[in-house]
Amino acid sequence: MAAAAAAGAGPEMVRGQVFDVGPRYTNLSYIGEGAYGMVCSAYDNVNKVRVAIKKISPFEHQTYCQRTLREIKILLRFRHENIIGINDIIRAPTIEQMKDVYIVQDLMETDLYKLLKTQHLSNDHICYFLYQILRGLKYIHSANVLHRDLKPSNLLLNTTCDLKICDFGLARVADPDHDHTGFLTEYVATRWYRAPEIMLNSKGYTKSIDIWSVGCILAEMLSNRPIFPGKHYLDQLNHILGILGSPSQEDLNCIINLKARNYLLSLPHKNKVPWNRLFPNADSKALDLLDKMLTFNPHKRIEVEQALAHPYLEQYYDPSDEPIAEAPFKFDMELDDLPKEKLKELIFEETARFQPGYRS
């Protein structure tokens, strides 16, 4: 834990890192770190609560700039109880001085990944967590956004079992017609939660990839272990087919990539493993919904509104309290091709509203 900075004593240090967030945020305490930044909790002297502050230093890398800009653009436009918001952003007053960006968010005690390492969940908890994931996802999908990296560590939890989806750095506007060349190379989302079509096709992607990830998360809540822990690309596919069985001819016809289709045709026939054999203690309604989410063919996979209306979630289902976005989200430009200098300018502009004396 960093010592509390005395008023006016300059930035606090946390594990050798400068955290320049005073005077409003003090009493910093280390939480963890990701690929390009550290997260601390801090005391907000204005709202009198502890908050989470993520320090991001992305400006050396085009990919990190892209992810940072995506996350900020999306989260500043989203407003939903099951999606983490941005409360404040701290950065230098000029673009030349801006080396880091500090993002202030609600402090959540833990995440689903940490929880599943230590606790076996009751059916009631599984049901409530799944409902909140789908409630947040309904809003995301209504904005025409794909999260693309749903996994237990991106689901934040607090002691009252509130759940918030975080990390929109890989999110995209849904565009089933656009052929994202190089899709697989830039697709760094965790393999275990990846839909089979991501490994088999490169053309376009749809909201059904997020539903697949939610199915993987439900299976993990039922058993405290990942359902498809593939060691590499082909191993991942083999794990999936080992449980779902061989795809039907109709399902194979959806695979545009001939090499991928021929690979699947070359494999020995596998039978589907019954879900109640894998999860003998699970609620039968939970397994019915799991089956509809972990469907090989993305066109037959359940959609988020149908999933919310499934009998497993009937005690929570309330369409009048499951809000959607006001308007579909649009990125003005494809960020993939922009140089990091341009992305830095866009991050600077996007964060201006939090600067003292800002006038829109």
Score class of each variant (00 low, 15 high):
residue 45 N to R: 01
residue 216 C to F: 13
residue 185 T to K: 10
residue 91 R to K: 01
residue 38 M to Q: 12
residue 150 L to Q: 14
residue 145 V to F: 08
residue 353 R to W: 09
residue 21 V to P: 07
residue 280 P to S: 10
residue 118 T to W: 08
residue 39 V to P: 07
residue 265 L to N: 01
residue 253 N to T: 11
residue 205 Y to E: 09
residue 48 K to I: 14
residue 2 A to F: 00
residue 259 K to E: 04
residue 278 L to E: 06
residue 133 I to P: 01
residue 281 N to H: 11
residue 284 S to H: 05
residue 131 Y to C: 00
residue 7 A to R: 12
residue 189 A to E: 10
residue 182 G to D: 07
residue 89 I to Y: 07
residue 313 L to F: 09
residue 7 A to P: 04
residue 336 D to S: 02
residue 124 D to S: 09
residue 26 T to K: 07
residue 358 Y to A: 05
residue 77 R to C: 01
residue 140 I to Q: 09
residue 64 Y to P: 14
residue 348 F to H: 03
residue 64 Y to S: 14
residue 205 Y to L: 03
residue 94 T to L: 09
residue 285 K to S: 09
residue 238 N to S: 11
residue 67 R to Q: 12
residue 16 G to W: 05
residue 102 Y to L: 04
residue 100 D to V: 14
residue 178 H to Q: 13
residue 205 Y to G: 08
residue 127 C to K: 07
residue 271 N to F: 07
residue 315 Q to S: 09
residue 234 L to Y: 12
residue 199 M to S: 07
residue 24 R to N: 05
residue 66 Q to K: 15
residue 190 T to I: 11
residue 113 Y to E: 02
residue 6 A to S: 13
residue 131 Y to V: 08
residue 82 N to D: 01
residue 53 I to L: 11
residue 269 H to L: 15
residue 102 Y to G: 04
residue 84 I to T: 00
residue 61 H to K: 11
residue 341 E to F: 05
residue 175 D to K: 11
residue 23 P to T: 13
residue 148 R to E: 09
residue 63 T to H: 15
residue 30 Y to Q: 03
residue 100 D to K: 02
residue 69 L to M: 14
residue 171 A to V: 12
residue 151 K to N: 13
residue 52 A to M: 12
residue 152 P to Y: 02
residue 61 H to G: 01
residue 186 E to F: 00
residue 98 M to E: 03
residue 64 Y to G: 07
residue 123 N to R: 02
residue 60 E to L: 12
residue 41 S to I: 02
residue 331 F to K: 01
residue 312 Y to N: 15
residue 179 D to F: 10
residue 126 I to G: 06
residue 224 N to M: 10
residue 276 N to K: 14
residue 175 D to E: 12
residue 246 S to D: 02
residue 227 I to S: 13
residue 288 D to W: 03
residue 85 G to Q: 13
residue 147 H to W: 04
residue 333 M to R: 02
residue 121 L to K: 07
residue 324 I to G: 04
residue 325 A to P: 06
residue 261 R to W: 12
residue 183 F to C: 12
residue 257 N to T: 14
residue 209 I to F: 14
residue 196 P to T: 15
residue 240 I to Y: 09
residue 185 T to Q: 09
residue 326 E to P: 01
residue 135 R to A: 08
residue 183 F to V: 14
residue 215 G to Y: 10
residue 40 C to T: 10
residue 52 A to R: 07
residue 129 F to W: 07
residue 202 S to E: 11
residue 109 E to P: 00
residue 296 F to R: 05
residue 316 Y to V: 08
residue 121 L to Q: 14
residue 309 A to C: 03
residue 34 G to F: 03
residue 208 S to Y: 14
residue 162 D to F: 10
residue 318 D to N: 14
residue 245 G to S: 12
residue 88 D to G: 00
residue 88 D to Y: 15
residue 34 G to L: 08
residue 222 L to Q: 14
residue 54 K to T: 11
residue 314 E to Q: 11
